[in-house]
Nucleic acid binder design. Structure first.
Length: 273
DNA sequence: CACACAACCTGCGAGC
DNA sequence: TGCTCGCAGGTTGTGT
């Protein structure tokens, strides 16, 4: 899916357009199921409620409603949340939508259907099965070099540790590869062998790469776009991701692609040790 | 605990 | 042109 910067970009787009609007109509369009079934009573539970706030948690979009409900949306690999208006004509893979008092229409589209839409109560959110086991947010004050060092004390390649959301959330395949390149650490290194100095550098590079990507509107590969359909352009700044065989921007050696945990990892064997 | 693998799906590009 | 294959930003559960 979109990783943290892409989800954050979508949340910002929604905040700019639908805060304080009331839901006037809900359409459950799909006969197919997403990763989970959309609750059958979702329409009656969210109609006539007002959007109070929109908060990103890991790669989840949390839409807080006036009636104490929280709409949880995850985009999976190919999900999109698009902001349209009420005369929008539905497209293939549109699964769910709701209309608002200002005439806008929020549409969830997801070809691969790895995403999900569900509902919970505000006071049950932190104990929700999808939320309760999530690790620390990279931009939270709990995320410190000390915390990172503690969770990296394991016998596992660093790339896999970074992508395990028990420890840190929001860092997916792209940004794990990019942060490791900027830190000059090989994705193959066993986490516990990183020196405190390397951990500290990695810590700052994780934040740096995520922050920069948010500022660039995220990364658009195949199908990611913001709520208005605009592409991000952080992908143009990738140092290693998707650049197999191309020259390292730092040393001119060729970028290598390997497979770790079933996922592609890209790195420079010369710059990263 | 660490890891491999499968499952959930459609779409696209590469190669034949 | 058309076919098959492999692969894609994620998460969860199983088995070894």
């Amino acid at each position: 899916m979109p990783e943290l910067p892409e989800v954050e970009t979508i949340c910002q787009g929604l905040r700019d357009n639908i805060l304080n609007q009331t839901i006037t109509e809900v359409s459950h369009l799909t006969k197919h199921r997403l990763r989970q079934e959309i609750p059958k009573d979702i329409t009656q539970k969210i109609i006539n409620s007002t959007i109070h706030s929109i908060v990103r948690r890991a790669k989840y979009i949390q839409i807080f409603l006036s009636n104490n409900q929280v709409l949880l949306i995850h985009l999976g690999m190919s999900g999109k949340v698009l902001l349209k208006n009420k005369d929008y004509i539905y497209q293939k893979h549109d699964h769910f939508s709701f209309a608002l008092t200002n005439g806008s229409l929020v549409v969830y589209n997801d070809p691969r259907r790895f995403g999900l839409i569900t509902l919970t109560k505000k006071d049950e959110l932190e104990n929700h099965a999808l939320i309760k086991n999530l690790g620390v947010e990279p931009f939270d004050s709990k995320f410190t070099p000390g915390y990172l060092e503690k969770v990296l004390n394991r016998k596992q390649p660093i790339k896999l540790s970074l992508m395990d959301n028990k420890y840190i959330v929001g860092v997916g395949n792209i940004y794990a590869s990019e942060a490791l390149f900027l830190s000059k650490v090989s994705p193959l290194r066993i986490s516990s062998t990183l020196t405190p100095k390397e951990v500290k550098l990695l810590y700052s590079k994780i934040i740096e790469v995520l922050d920069l990507s948010i500022k660039r509107g995220g990364s658009s590969l195949k199908d990611y776009a913001s709520v208005s359909g605009e592409k991000g352009y952080f992908q143009n700044l990738f140092n290693v991701y998707g650049r197999e065989g191309e020259e390292c921007k730092s040393c001119n050696q060729h970028i290598i692609k390997i497979k770790q945990g079933g996922r592609a990892s890209f790195y420079c064997d010369h710059c990263q040790n």
